[in-house]
Design a protein around this nucleic acid. Structure first.
Length: 298
RNA sequence: GGCGCUAUAGCCAAGUGGUAAGGCACGAGUCUGCAAAACUCUGAUCCCCGGUUCAAAUCCGGGUGGCGCCU
């Protein structure tokens, strides 16, 4: 299941009740503690007693990544199955979702932050094109799809080479060797773009009313570093607002706009996955739950 | 009513005689360890009418709209 702002929370809980399921969140930001409002986390009440995994598992001052997600999600899947229940993976982080459905095996390496910083500095001082050329020399194949402006991915090619002695291309081939051990069905929720965007706007207004500003203020007091958490939509904009870089109107507008753009990117991501069965987000959760039950043969 | 300024893509905006910079948004897309991130692609003949000129978004006249000032 995927997509935000579509009522996926409601639907997933309804489904869990019907099939004796438990929910595994697939959301790169809901893993963080102390970030409730801006990530639109389901509340305890909303959860209705259905157990949720991978929500609030880390403080925002810690780094997180797909490989870690993959490990933890798989543990959760096992645990749920052992109880004789059904795992329901719910969320809109496409990369994380793919780690599961493509069964990607991430080799056990930790990120060398020093080297990464070194490369970033080098890119700044001597220009990214230098790194780009290096990367091309190492892994011509991978560089075919990486833009000369794509700093993150260029650096990643170099990191992999330094840490494993293998190219990104080689590593990816190895990572795909195992078949995934589960049967699954994938569902997505859509609705007309205008309605989706309108819902997003309303949701942002609601977040502001619920105290997004205060939540971010508290966050900034409690933690000093945010290796990944401050990338979160709504949070980085609120921080800018608190710093006086945006006025109130600009602040709210920007969160709305960025959220709309995010929703569009999610759509692009999931649209290319042909195994997704699309549900109409304008239908009721009962109707959609019934459709899902039919599809999975319950 | 008079005077001045202005009118370029959805928005902001460069360009003052030789056939339209850039930014943002929209739309489309990429995606294997930061992914709610990062990156890629995509649009106009320049308010209207007339004139000058080999050639006008660019000069001149008129019209219309906007902004400012004056009585």
């Amino acid at each position: 299941m995927d997509q935000q702002h579509h009522g996926k929370t409601d639907l997933s809980i309804e489904l869990a009740k019907r099939i004796k399921g438990e929910i595994i969140s697939c959301d790169s930001m809901q893993i963080y503690q102390d970030m409730q409002i801006g990530t639109a986390k389901p509340t305890v009440t909303e959860m209705q007693g259905i157990k949720h995994y991978l929500i609030d598992i880390l403080p925002p001052n810690q780094r997180f990544s797909v490989s870690e997600y993959k490990i933890r999600a798989e543990e959760a899947i096992k645990e749920i199955l052992q109880k004789g229940k059904k795992p329901i993976v719910v969320g809109g982080t496409g990369l994380y979702m793919d780690s599961l459905i493509k069964g990607i095996q991430y080799p056990d390496i930790t990120i060398d932050e020093k080297y990464r910083e070194e490369l970033e500095l080098l890119a700044e001082k001597k220009g990214l094109s230098l790194l780009y050329q290096k990367a091309c020399a190492i892994d011509k194949e991978a560089m075919k799809t990486i833009s000369p402006n794509d700093k993150k991915r260029i650096i990643r090619v170099l990191e992999i080479w330094k840490q494993t002695g293998k190219t990104k291309t080689e590593l990816e081939i190895e990572s795909r060797k195992q078949e995934i051990p589960y049967q699954y069905k994938m569902f997505g929720i859509t609705m007309p773009r205008e309605i989706l965007y309108e819902k997003i706007n309303q949701r942002v207004e609601k977040m502001v009313k619920l105290g997004l500003q205060e939540e971010v203020e508290n966050l900034l007091v409690k933690y000093k570093e945010f290796p990944t958490a401050m990338q979160s939509l709504g949070y980085k904009e609120t921080r800018a607002y608190l710093r006086g870089e945006l006025n109130r109107e600009e602040w709210i507008e920007m969160i709305k706009r960025e959220t709309r753009r995010y929703a569009k990117r999610q759509l692009t991501w999931f649209r290319r996955n042909k195994e997704i069965i699309w549900l109409d987000g304008l239908k009721t959760k009962q109707e959609n739950t019934n459709l899902i039950l039919e599809e999975i043969g319950e």
